[in-house]
């Protein structure tokens, strides 16, 4: 029975997300990165890019990883906005007071929003990747080069990439949820959630900075993502030692659980005075 109720709460979030302009905008912002391979192919034909460089964008699977790498610069922020929007939107529109009296367990609603945000972010990522591949095909066709490159080991790389994005989305959603619950506002959640992602990596240089989950998330990106943004030497310098997937994973997951646990605890206990 509890699972049925929870499933319906997730369905409610997806119903709202489908029509919400905020989510549609973030989705468009995200998939905008997918057009890069076709654009690069188009301008390469007109002599604006070197063909060798263009091949790393238009051939498969390079187009896939290039789109993933470039979208990674904004993807965590977009995930933060999605999660903050899902929860903060209820504070902003005052709808908590409409729905919470009908809900037996408050934390169940918050967790449903967390799960739905993850789902929306993941679908956005898949769409970006799929469009990126189509865009690469278009670019290769424009350039008149073969689209398909060396695909050996691709499935393994895809599974590792999927695992990394799952961990990243989990962490960012938990962080944004905590920020929204702390500030009781959508704007507060977005601002603190985004600023935190930019500023907190500097904590890696403080004593015990290696514990910071952001640095460990970046280490995981280096380990799991083909053509990630980071260099191994820089990551090892930040973490003060060799990259260790198990340790980084444990660190990120521990912080995710703590952030989400505190958010759920606060949400269950706090008075809804003006919401």
């Amino acid at each position: 029975m509890r699972a049925v109720v929870f499933g319906r709460q997730v369905a409610s979030e997806l119903l709202k997300a489908r029509r919400r302009s905020l989510f549609i905008s973030t989705f468009i912002a995200q998939i905008a990165f997918a057009v890069f391979p076709a654009v690069i192919g188009f301008w390469t034909v007109r002599g604006k890019f070197a063909p060798d460089y263009a091949l790393t964008w238009v051939t498969f699977p390079h187009c896939l990883w290039s789109v993933v790498r470039i979208s990674q610069y904004v993807f965590p922020i977009i995930v933060g906005i999605i999660a903050a929007g899902s929860m903060g939107g209820e504070y902003a529109s005052g709808t908590w007071k409409m729905i919470l009296p009908r809900v037996g367990v408050r934390t169940s609603v918050l967790f449903a929003k967390f799960l739905a945000s993850m789902g929306v972010a993941m679908v956005g990522l898949w769409c970006t990747v799929a469009l990126g591949v189509c865009s690469g095909f278009l670019g290769a066709t424009l350039m008149g080069v073969p689209f398909l490159g060396d695909t050996s080991g691709l499935w393994g790389e895809l599974v590792r990439a999927q695992a990394f994005f799952l961990v990243e989305i989990l962490f960012v959603c938990a962080f944004a949820t905590l920020m929204v619950v702390l500030t009781r506002s959508f704007v507060g959640g977005v601002v603190l959630g985004s600023l935190g992602q930019f500023l907190l990596p500097f904590a890696a240089f403080l004593p015990f900075g290696w514990v910071y989950p952001g640095a460990n998330l970046q280490a995981l990106e280096k380990i799991l993502l083909t053509e990630g943004r980071f260099k191994q030497g820089e990551m090892e310098s930040v973490l003060g030692g060799a990259l260790h997937p198990g340790r980084s994973f444990a660190c990120v997951m521990a912080f995710t659980v703590v952030f989400m646990g505190v958010a759920l605890w606060l949400f269950a206990r706090r008075d809804m005075v003006s919401e």
Binding site: S93, K97, R102, G104
Partner: peptide, 17 residues
């Protein structure tokens, strides 16, 4: 929760739905 319905102050909805 299953026995009550409520409007608290101004009724608030999802304006985009």
């Amino acid at each position: 929760a299953s026995l009550v319905g409520a409007i608290v102050e101004v009724p608030c909805f999802y304006p985009y739905l």
